[in-house]
Design a protein around this nucleic acid. Sequence first.
RNA 1: GGGCGAUUAACUCAGCGGGAGAGUGCCUCCCUUACAAGGAGGAAGUCACUGGUUCAAAUCCAGUAUCGCCCACCA
Length: 896
Amino acid sequence: MARREVVRRHMSEMPKAYDPGAVEGPIFTSWMTGKYFEQPVVEGAEPFAVVIPPPNVTGSLHMGHALNNTIQDVVIRRSRMTGRPTRWIVGTDHAGIATQNKVEQMLASQDLSRYDVGREKFIELCWTWRSEHGSIIIEQLKRMGCSCDYSDEWFTMDPSYQKAVRTVFVDWFDKGLIYRGKRIINWCPRCSTALSDIEVEHEDLDSHLWHLRYPLKEPVGGVDHVVVATTRPETMLGDTCVAVHPDDERYVALVGATVVLPLLGREIPIVADDFVDPAFGTGAVKVTPAHDPNDFEIGERHGCAKINVMAADATITEEGGPYVGLDRYEARKRVVADLEALGLLVKTDDHVHSVGHCYRCHTVIEPWLSDQWFVDMKPLAAPAIEAVRDGRVTFHPKRWENVYFHWMENIRDWCISRQLWWGHRIPVFYCDACGETTASLDDITVCPKCGATDVRQDEDVLDTWFSSQLWPFATLGWPENTPELGLFYPTSVLSTARDILFLWVARMIMSGMYFVDGEVPYKDVIIHPTVFNAEGKRMSKSLGTGVDPLDLMEHYGADGMRFGLMLQTTGSQDIRFAEDKLASSRNFANKIWNASRFVLMNIAEDYEPGEPVVETVADAWVLSRLAGLAAAVDEGLTTYQFGDVARSLYDFFWSEFCDWYIEMAKPRLTAGGASAQIVQRNLVFVLDQALRLLHPMMPFITEEIWQRLPLPQADRAQSLMIAAWPDPAKLARFSDEGAEQSVSRLIEIVSGIRGVRARYNVPPKQGLQAVFKTASETDNAWLEAEFGLMSRLAGVSGFSAGTDQTKPAHAAAFVAGGLEVFVPLEGLVDFDAEKARVARQLEVARGDLAKLERKLSNEGFLAKAAPEIVEKDRAKAAELFDTVATLESQFAELDG
RNA sequence: GGGCGAUUAACUCAGCGGGAGAGUGCCUCCCUUACAAGGAGGAAGUCACUGGUUCAAAUCCAGUAUCGCCCACCA
């Protein structure tokens, strides 16, 4: 009922310019009210699901989100229109470190730390923070028009999600895939937590290679010291041996000797180890097993002590003797200075080396020895590698599969424990009485082994990515065996940025296959381009190099931003964000608006909705082009070629529908009668189909217009969102090669005449005459039939045509569509200019002809090229030959 | 150290074996009853370089240069 009113809205309500701000809000509300985002499951139809990469609750929309969510919405809306039960699962990620940082900052503003408020209160504050800020990004997705199922919004700390996380942990723990160990991990002294290897960002920094002289306790063969090279001199406080290569003749005699560690006086051995590269530095390595993964290995092999000289905040511990309490960089300075004072600093070389930084706060990470929980990844990786290899999961573009394989085949164990408070607490309980360690789905207070009642839970929480990896099935209700899980798993497409390929994508495949019957979590993975700024730099809020999607939507509309992004999403090329593309898209929206306004304005009072009818070549042409468009769009979306699709839509709508078909339709509309009725139907039909094809990329404007279209009953729907997607197979009936050729020819001739008009500055209102010298009776008939259109489009009021026509005096002349065209211009022709122009054309035509003739006289070409190519070139050569002859005679005439 | 991507018109980018394209910008004309966020016309490119494959190369292969990205236990 409400819809009826909407349809009846008169076009006078359509302002001359499209105003996205006035349209988008109400349209989105109507979608929400209509519950179109929650499409019911239909028996027999193949479900289609996408899980959104859950944005952090701390997040706000940036250009990466804008692009990624446009892609997902395009795919989702297209699927929904094809009638498949379609769900876009939405939600947010609790984002352990990021959220904890936010709340800690908040506390810091009151001069408080998390320790001041305590764990319980702190977690409570995190929940409060989440409820106050966590839905900002969800609202921004709505602003973009994203058609997620907001009625079922997920959060990675929901009770059922917590259950999924615990189920996974306990299962892997019981299977021995999760273990605890004392290892060198990546420690962020600022966040005060361990990080996994892939949460560390390496950056080459200019630094130094310090050469330190370590004295021997007793000289060996006259040698009283060994020189080691290091990039982190402060770690020498934790040195427990010096290593050399066993075959290094310079040092072989020293193996087994004792070094007195400077500054601390500790006696440490010289050991031989294959790891040492004799060519690097001095060939002698100071070994600090507690502060370097390689040194850890060497230390293990030689039974050296592991002395931890650094505290959690990267200050020196008591093990560092006089340096206790100093920050690591202050300690570095002091150690170097003190060694220099002792004459033990041999030299300081400039040295560039790669330094790891925390991916959350960019603090330099410290390799640090500590007790952590790990996942044994190799057994999980094997089936996930296989799934991509055999095509159960396909990456787009495909080359990302190699990146995936490389990482998966060299996968290392995953450190999953974090020394944070906000997150999924590790469900492990220790019994101090009997030493038992238990992983449990439910909290326990009694030791299952000895019955002691003072069990305590592990203090750490899990890596946020540990819970994120469960997203595709935890959001479908797993570990319960829900109907949703059966219907929508595996999901259809995952679209994401490449920087979380390992952190998230790979891990979802591994855990999904492990827990859901060996089934992959999604069939297609789209790795979309990264959006950079105009200078090609990463967009960054802190550096002020970013562009805010909300501002863009303000200026260009949500549709303008979406379409502009889609235009730039081509191949695998990263996007240097070009705002002028958004301006064209906003203009495009305006074009759609005005073309629609024109169509609606020209619908007669007694208009009867109905099927399109081919009355003229223009009708046949536009329907044929539409059929081609539908096929191209459908195919392009299937293969995720978003840029191609956007361009096809743009070109069809603007260049073909607006510039030519609407212009060709005008005389018929003005004339009225049966022909007007037919052309109205065709205009409505083509517009309707075009709006459907445009809808996934430009949902708002298309919906707003579509509601006003007078469609046949069968084509109607409550919303364009759920209207039928144009079926290329059905539209193929409109394909008409002949009509396409005929109109191409017409366009060529009209453009030629317009060119004459522009060259001689003939005012638009001044009519022109045209004389066509044709080659056959067929041409004459064709001209006779199509002249009406031509006259309107080129402003030609009269014509004569025939095989015997000759060039009138004072006429401009050109060749187009296989005809010689003369436009008499009494007194207007500038002979010199015209001569120069014809000469130029002649030169080009002769050049082309010569090139073609050379090709056609090449026996290799004739023998080996495909016959249809040869045929095409022959026809082209014949045409060029005629053109050259014509131009030559024109030139001769001008000469005389 | 290993790998990947890019190099096409002034700018941003398509095209990826057989006629060099688009948008923006620029030049000329036009406020024509859908749209000046518009219409019509136009100028503008040894497709980075070198070699190879092919009847045919912007397109495939190899190498070079420049820029960018990723991976790697680079004391």
